[in-house]
Write a protein that binds this DNA or RNA. Sequence first.
RNA 1: GCGGGCGUGGCGGAAUUGGCAGACGCAUAAGAUUUAGGAUCUUACGCCGCAAGGUGUGCAGGUUCAAGUCCUGUCGCCCGCACCA
Length: 800
Amino acid sequence: MKYDFAAIEQKWQKKWEEAKVFHAEDLSDKKKFYGLVEFPYPSGAGMHVGHIKAYAGLEVVSRKRRMEGYNVLFPIGFDAFGLPTENYAIKTGIHPRKVTDQNIKHFREQLSRVGFSFDWDRVVDTTDEKYYKWTQWIFLKLFEKGLVFRDTAMVNYCPSCKVVLSNEDSQGGKCDICKSDIIQKSKDVWYLRITAYAERLLSDLDTVDYLPNIKQQQVNWIGRSTGAFVNFPLCGVPDQLRIYTTRPDTLFGVTFMVIAPEHPLLQKYRSAIKNQAEIDAYAAECAKKTEFERTQLVKEKTGVRIEGITAKNPVSGKEIPIYIADYVMMGYGTGAIMAVPAHDERDYAFARKFGIDIVEVIRGGDISKEAYTGDGEMVASGFLNGLTNKKESIARMIAYLTEKGIGEEGVQYKMKDWAFNRQRYWGEPIPIVHCPHCGMVPVPYEELPLTLPQVENFVPGEGGESPLAKIASFVNCKCPRCGGDAKRETDTMPQWAGSSWYFLRYIDPLNDDALADPAKLAYWLPVDWYNGGMEHVTRHMIYSRFWHKFLYDIGVVPTAEPYAKRTAQGLILGSDGQKMSKSLGNVVDPLNVVDVYGADTLRVYVLFMGDYGSAAPWSESSMRGCRRFLDRVAALTEKVRGEGVTPALEASFHKTVKKVSSDIEEMKFNTAIAALMTLLNEIEAHGSLTKDELLTFISLLDPFAPHLAEEIHEELGCEGFLATAPWPTFDEAKTRSDTVEVAVQVNGKLRGVVPMPADCGEAEALSLAKSDEKVAAAIAGKTVVKEIVVKNKIVNLVVR
RNA sequence: GCGGGCGUGGCGGAAUUGGCAGACGCAUAAGAUUUAGGAUCUUACGCCGCAAGGUGUGCAGGUUCAAGUCCUGUCGCCCGCACCA
């Protein structure tokens, strides 16, 4: 058969679409499989080959599942709200709606030309008001349950673009768009109380099957620690200072305290502070620093001692100074710490610089040189003296603190509440009304969606407020509660919002009465297998797990976790080994590859190029090897002789069915394809195969190169689609051939390879081994002291 | 600093989990075929060596009949988080 890939691919893409071969059937009696890939952001640049690799993995699994008789849901959609589209709109004056629609059209075209088996009737678009109606609905539910709150926070602000930026968009203290310096600005911020779910987000990781490194990253992100809260009495003002520590066992070693520059104590007791001006100046200096400067540049410790207020060590009774320093953050714990310079490196550096006492309470190091953070015997610690077990010391101290009422056990998380707003146009409007009498009032559910108004000008306001603030007809409204004049919230939701529940909408994308029908949710959930990039395993996955758990709590979804299994693909690097980027000019456009080599070649190559989970550089010549493979497969149609089984190939076929089947499950696509290549080599060496064997071959090939496989299927005169034909089976007993090649070693060195009957006994194996010419020569004149026989594998003769 | 991972030919990468290291593919070389070829076919291809043979999975040790795989030490690289109290 001639391999005219362009004609073949067009033909089958059309046939699949017309017959709705990849349609997922709701509430079917069949076993279900829900495979999910991360939906793309439809940028103007179009897809690159990285998208193809990301989708090709579960594409193969989904196609295999269909052939195994599953009812498969393999959907796709578009995460289309966001900054690049809006910036493009600002630059060109074209409305983001129009830009988005064009980009989506382009992406759909690209995806369908690769022949992905998506169910195109379930496409979701997060910017569709019928979709974001439910994003807003979830927000209102969160609001109703007290999981939404407002607070002021310092934000990254670009004075040149007049825009508030996320940390990701202001890396290195520079604006991502115009490269000018970012300043810190105080801003009202909407927060979602994700920390209320921290414990469950952590502990429920035990119930899901994520790759170990993915789980670990989430554990680190949540960052649970246990320790104690301790209240230090203050001298000079009638109050106490509450701190969090993971090392309550070192309490006797506390020689000073440090509070964050934003700590409320500084305002509350201004008059008691004698060096107010100095403190204010330092705090102002810190406020100017960006998050980057304060955290990334771990340089010399700075700080100022607070004059007029001191603290008392609650266990030793000693009076100790309090400092203000920017190495303590307001955002973690209580914004105040007890400092134990002898046993903490940061406290040690600070104490050295400010000449503060360093008191050893754990033996084992040399505190004149550096902080000792290891274990050892407790000293100078009252009732803890002599203990050597850290856990026990901590437990005793906590018991003491609790008994005396000066502290208690506590848990802290690194994870912070989710800042949930952007001062931008192209996002979901936050459905809240600010009423001078009633305060924050939610938009009534029946008024959703709260749609984005049509705007001509998307440039953000001078003060960094949303472009929506300039639309009087949008801002001015009546309070839903009292009917009086009120103003709408003009911030929009961050890009993470729409992607936090999109996998639910695929289940019932057109439903206007609920985010999805409960029966359908019960049928399809959880997502059986979710694949995507490592860059999304913390934020996107944690955010969406949080929303899902919330929806579970209010009875909307039937499972506590959204994703049963999560894997990740590795990057495709440019042929220069660098990350693909426009500026390096090493980006590969998948459509160019499809035009020149065909979609099947592209699909096979992105999976064959290396371990699926690792990064691998693009190589056009390697890809040509995949094309050659498909050419040779097409030529197999010329080699068909009769039906049934070719005895010489039987074991190889059974072996290959087994290997390809299990490799796909483990995402070892490269070795699955290699196994097919090996089998092809054997078939060619043999010279012919039967029709049944070719059918088996193309069935195994179908998930990888479905167009060619379908064409050969038709060429063989088979009815229907190969896409829904049964997956081949194998017989374990037939995967083994009658004779095996056994390696024979003498003193661990290979001396010969001897053919032996499969599963032959030890005695026979030994005698066959020794009758080999080279082996006989190697043991001649020596005494065999030990004989090791591993069945079907190896014989080792130890001689002296 | 904390956490995760990796180190195998000229290149991408295999290795049934302790059992013939380098599967499969690329590149390269020689030959065949072709008007031509960035096509196709055959053969070779870790390193040293004409060969017999020796040697070889970052480096140094160890366990074992047997180590890429296990243990100890060491060097190097990548990714995530990061003054987290």
